[in-house]
Design a protein around this nucleic acid. Sequence first.
DNA 1: CACCGGAAGTACACACCGTAGACTTCGGCA
DNA 2: TGCCGAAGTCTACGGTGTGTACTTCCGGTG
Lengths: 210, 210
Amino acid sequence: MTDARAAFHHGDLRAALIASGLELSRTAGAEAIVLREATRRAGVTARAAYRHFADRDALVRAVAQAALAEMARTIERRQQGATDPVAMLHALGTGYIQFALDEPGWFDVAFFAMADMLNTTAAESAGATGRSPYQQLEDALAGLVRSGRLDPAQAPNAALVCWSGVHGFATLTSHGPLRDRPRDQVDQQAEYLVGYLVQSVVTIPPPPVA
Amino acid sequence: MTDARAAFHHGDLRAALIASGLELSRTAGAEAIVLREATRRAGVTARAAYRHFADRDALVRAVAQAALAEMARTIERRQQGATDPVAMLHALGTGYIQFALDEPGWFDVAFFAMADMLNTTAAESAGATGRSPYQQLEDALAGLVRSGRLDPAQAPNAALVCWSGVHGFATLTSHGPLRDRPRDQVDQQAEYLVGYLVQSVVTIPPPPVA
DNA sequence: CACCGGAAGTACACACCGTAGACTTCGGCA
DNA sequence: TGCCGAAGTCTACGGTGTGTACTTCCGGTG
């Protein structure tokens, strides 16, 4: 659908619009993606966008997938060289948070992509190794299970605890109440939190409270 | 500024606009707060809103504070009758999540109010007991410290871990990737997560990883 | 009591947005 | 060569936030 022959009047409008969307959302988040401005930057009439996207929301979703892929790449970069599953999980957590802090606009849009669980595992949301952030979490936990440091039955719970904790922290510190805290303090707290979560996971989690 | 004598041509337009804003945002979140529609519902010209709010954003923030207060009341209701600090903390966590699930629109707006840490402690964001959700967290942890179940030096870290975990879970399950999960399953996971966090807090947390 | 100053609300206007329908351009295939 | 369908343009509509200028009406002061 977006093969080379689709390059027609324009070069590849679909890709150009997504690129414009990334520019627009980088500083001001998802709501800054305005269809008319994106087409303007691509040197094309507003209505032309409708040949490639059903409506503005479809464009935003496409940009979101691109942002999520950017996030996956950031995480992969952090994980580079790590082979120990514990180190992998730790790098995943800090990479997730780092991306939210360094690219708050993209983190905001990426959440749109995540909003649909199916998209989270789509190829467009993946990094160089072809894994989306959520799949990267699954991978890291699978590594812990293989190395005998995590009860397989507890893996889903561990995913929940880790994802919730890291995502909450990322949200609170990038858009939320804690967004004005000095960066070095936030980095320190992130390090603490991720260390805390990783350590929790490699211990047997408590059973649900009755 | 909003005393009874301010009731002039209209009854109390400021309050009426906030009420309309709560209606509008209840189902569709913050972006559904459209100034013209709010004034329309108050039976007044669009421009009249500017006598009470600098711009749309100011209205949204005011609505956000009201939503945050609603959240505080939900939590208070959950805590009713609990005296044990552990039970208080547990009820806080589940109340926070319950509100996000039952009122996703208001939870979305409330985050706008939280976006400024000062607002989080403003009187308009408080429940019947005059405490905002963040203050309720501080109170619960202070109770744990008083009862000797939490090292005072670890209280800030505990706040961070709890808030991040609960907020992340609430976000993921109300607007995020997990929003389509069946409600009873989500409730079960919420119970697990909150129990997990509470138990973590009453244990000595691990030191930061070097 | 008359009056008038300022607060509350109105009328109109503007630029911008997302999107619909009909038209034009252009490349590849018969 | 001729034509068909994809890609993009033109024009238009209703909606939005917001600026400037005007009107309406209350409450305190002479």
